[in-house]
Every structure is written in C-alpha cells, then in structure tokens.
Simulated scan of single mutants.
Amino acid sequence: MAALLVVLFPFGLLVFLLFMEKVEAPLRRSNDPQEVERFLDHAKQEDVDNIIAGGLRKAMDRWRGRVARRKSQPDNE
C-alpha cells in the first residue's frame, strides 16, 4: 500500500498543480484602468447586466471579444 502511495502521490500532486494553474491564471491578470474607463464609457445595458451577474472580469472579457470581432470585420461602407 505504501509503494502505491509513493508512486501515485507525484501524479496526484501534478494534477493538482495543473488545476491550480488554471484557477489562478485569470486572477493574475489585472484590468488596465484606462481599459476599464473605456469600457464604462461605452457600456451597453447587456454589459451592465454582465457586471451584475458575473462581475467586472466577465463583462470585460465579453466586451473585449465584441470589440475584437468589430475590428476583424471589414467595413462595408
């Protein structure tokens, strides 16, 4: 039993560390104050609802995605 524990413990520790990396990655990323100001200047009702439902980080991520999609689409003017 002890031999099995010695063999499996490093793998369990590795899985735990990989899981914690995924959990901590969004927490390490901070929002730029200027970007937050731009977000608040251009916020729609949907963005305000996202802040209420999931917090500022979720709302900022959705807003960044929407801005990126707008920039990637060619102008049809």
Rank of each mutant, 00 (worst) to 15 (best):
P33E: 03
A3E: 14
N31P: 01
A2R: 12
E35V: 15
R28Q: 11
Q73S: 07
G65V: 09
N50D: 14
M60T: 07
L13M: 13
D49M: 08
D47I: 12
K22L: 15
M60L: 15
F16K: 00
L40D: 03
Q45P: 03
L27S: 02
A53S: 09
A59Y: 11
A25L: 05
F39Q: 02
R64D: 03
G54T: 08
R69G: 08
M20Y: 10
L13W: 15
N76M: 11
D49P: 01
L4K: 00
E24S: 06
P26V: 07
R28E: 14
L5C: 04
A3L: 13
P33A: 04
Q45S: 08
D75A: 14
I52Y: 11
V23T: 07
V15A: 14
K22D: 11
A53N: 06
N31K: 00
R64E: 07
L4A: 09
S72W: 03
L8K: 01
P74T: 12
L4M: 05
V36K: 00
Q73H: 09
M1D: 05
M20A: 09
G65P: 02
K44M: 12
V67L: 11
V6E: 01
Q45L: 15
S30V: 09
R62C: 09
D49W: 09
E37V: 14
E46G: 10
R66E: 05
G12H: 04
R57A: 12
F9Q: 01
K58S: 11
E77S: 07
M60R: 07
R38E: 08
V7T: 08
L40V: 11
N76R: 09
D49L: 13
M20F: 12
R29A: 10
F16E: 00
R57L: 03
V36D: 00
V36G: 00
M20D: 07
M20H: 05
E37H: 13
L8P: 06
I52N: 07
R57D: 10
F16I: 09
L27Q: 03
K71N: 05
